[in-house]
Simulated scan of single mutants.
Amino acid sequence: MLDEGDDAPEVTAPMATPEAARETDRGSYTSDDVSEFSLADALADGPVVLAFYPGVYSRTCTRELCELRDWKADLADLDAPLYGVSADTPWSLLAFVDEYDIQYPLVSGFNNDVIADFGVRREEGIVRGIANRAVFVVDPSGTVTYTWAATEPLTFPDTDAVEAAVAAAARE
């Protein structure tokens, strides 16, 4: 897993946005509904929060993503976008965004290295390849300024600590 002070990797990956999820009927998504996420482009506007999670529609992840949805309003004042990242396909992410009214984009680690590049790819077991639960704050220069990783199931990041890290990264 990347540590504080490490340079974030160059990341380009498919992304499901709330706008695309609203504009197309669930079950009718095509590649035209999938956007491209570029970490470099996102960082042009300030710090970024990346929340890695194993997968949509699982009990713990659904709860976490909905908690982050509810918490995201606090980040709006800090002007830092939040992106969820999992190994799910962009189409399943679009359906999840639609069903749970997620108001932030979800990045697809399907068929790319974003999860491995951040060092949170599960390497063993029946579900190897999914992301371990982790949060990173990346400052505008591309430096990781905050990390958090779950050590037990049903644990979630301290959102106050993430907010403080975002505020600090924005000042740098």
Rank of each mutant, 00 (worst) to 15 (best):
P90N: 02
P157N: 08
E163N: 07
S108Q: 06
T24Q: 04
F110P: 01
V49I: 10
M15T: 11
A170G: 12
I102M: 04
L154D: 14
Y29L: 09
P90V: 00
A167H: 09
A95K: 11
L2N: 08
V97M: 03
E23V: 03
P105E: 13
S141D: 15
M15N: 04
S141T: 15
R26D: 15
D3G: 06
S108A: 13
D117E: 15
L50N: 05
L94D: 01
S92C: 03
V137I: 08
T145F: 01
I130D: 12
S141M: 07
L43D: 06
E124N: 14
D160R: 05
A42R: 04
N132F: 07
F110S: 04
A73R: 13
A95G: 14
A116H: 13
V107K: 02
A167R: 06
E19C: 10
L154F: 11
A40D: 14
P153C: 04
W71S: 04
S38M: 00
E124S: 15
D41H: 12
V85L: 11
R59H: 15
D88E: 03
P18R: 11
D32G: 09
A20V: 05
D70R: 02
R121S: 12
A42V: 09
T151R: 11
G55W: 02
T89V: 00
A116E: 15
A116L: 04
D113N: 08
S92T: 08
D74Q: 10
S92M: 15
T151M: 14
P54F: 14
C61P: 01
D74Y: 10
S86V: 02
D79H: 15
A164V: 09
T143H: 08
V138K: 03
T24H: 05
A21K: 05
D88G: 08
R122E: 14
I102T: 03
V127Q: 10
A13F: 08
A20G: 06
A44K: 15
D79Q: 03
M1H: 10
C61S: 12
T89E: 07
D25N: 11
L50E: 01
S38K: 03
A76H: 00
I115D: 10
